[in-house]
């Protein structure tokens, strides 16, 4: 009986992990091997990438963009999650609206955003209608361009963050709020002393999930700014791969990006492990 249970557990772990290994991790490893090839085994590809000023700018942009996008989407995601989980049920229209950007295919959403932000796009048209000058939302290499990309990215993924946080919010037992109410806590105090601490695991989980994606930001930059307008690490790799036909160097850049994401992820997780007060919550596991 016990052995059967053990077998079940092992296969429940082994099957999914084997599946991931074959579909994603093996190709990944062969990518790593490619990155060390240049007339035989060599570090030449890494030397080129690390010495390239465009790459250094890409690293900088990647970090700025990810940070800006995460801040915006978490603030909005939290607000929307609270809105949707509130005692007075949000209206049907609100519920659908909050989730809407998740439903529009990414490529479609991004091209619409582009039509809005172009020099002669809808937004500048609206500004002109009220007598304001046109703004270069997507001017290559401008800080504004980075900001536009970050906002559009946040706009698109906020529903995902909302859902992840909503999941955490709903894990908070109603009795806790009742108890807090009995203690005379107002809604602010409730948020501060009940919601936030208990939401922490969900926040960390969502942060790790979304943080990885934010650092890999690709399509948003490609469609809105172009790989030269706001180069990030993934578009840098893509440009090397697609336009420059330097496949091995592209892999080297990809491996550097993956290493960076892995390192940052490890830092966040280690930080969480040190500051973790008490357990509880679904996503606590993410902090390992």
């Amino acid at each position: 009986m016990r052995r059967a249970g053990r077998f079940l557990r092992l296969s429940c772990l082994g099957l999914p992990l084997g599946f991931l290994a074959i579909t994603l991790i093996l190709p990944l490893l062969s990518g790593v091997i490619l990155s060390f090839q240049a007339d035989g085994f060599s570090l030449e590809n890494y030397r080129f990438v690390l010495g390239d000023s465009l790459f250094r700018r890409s690293v900088y942009n990647t970090l700025i963009l990810a940070a800006a996008s995460l801040v915006v989407e978490f603030v909005w995601g939290l607000i929307f999650a609270l809105l949707l989980s509130s005692r007075r049920r949000a209206s049907f229209v609100t519920e659908v609206s909050v989730l809407m950007p998740l439903l529009i295919p990414e490529i479609v959403f991004l091209s619409v955003a582009r039509y809005i932000l172009l020099p002669r796009g809808y937004l500048n048209g609206a500004l002109a209608a009220v007598g304001l000058p046109a703004v270069g939302w997507l001017d290559p290499r401008s800080a504004l361009c980075l900001l536009s990309v970050a906002l559009v990215d946040a706009w698109r993924v906020t529903p995902m963050v909302t859902l992840l946080l909503l999941d955490g919010l709903q894990g908070i037992p109603a009795e806790l709020y009742e108890a807090a109410l009995l203690d005379g806590a107002g809604s602010f105090a409730q948020s501060r002393y009940v919601t936030l601490p208990l939401l922490k695991p969900a926040l960390y989980g969502a942060l790790v999930l979304r943080g990885v994606d934010a650092l890999r930001i690709f399509s948003t930059v490609l469609v809105l700014a172009g790989p030269e307008g706001a180069p990030v690490m993934s578009t840098y790799a893509y440009q090397l791969w697609g336009d420059a036909m330097e496949e091995h160097r592209a892999m080297a850049a990809s491996v550097l990006l993956a290493t960076m994401i892995g390192t940052l992820g490890a830092v966040v997780i280690a930080f969480r492990a040190r500051t973790r007060a008490s357990g509880g919550g679904a996503l606590e596991g993410l902090s390992g």
Partner: peptide, 17 residues
């Protein structure tokens, strides 16, 4: 100003606009 990112299609679109 967007010349730094223009490619065949995007520059053509800018011309059309």
């Amino acid at each position: 100003v967007r010349s730094a990112v223009f490619r065949e299609m995007s520059v053509l679109e800018a011309q059309a606009r």
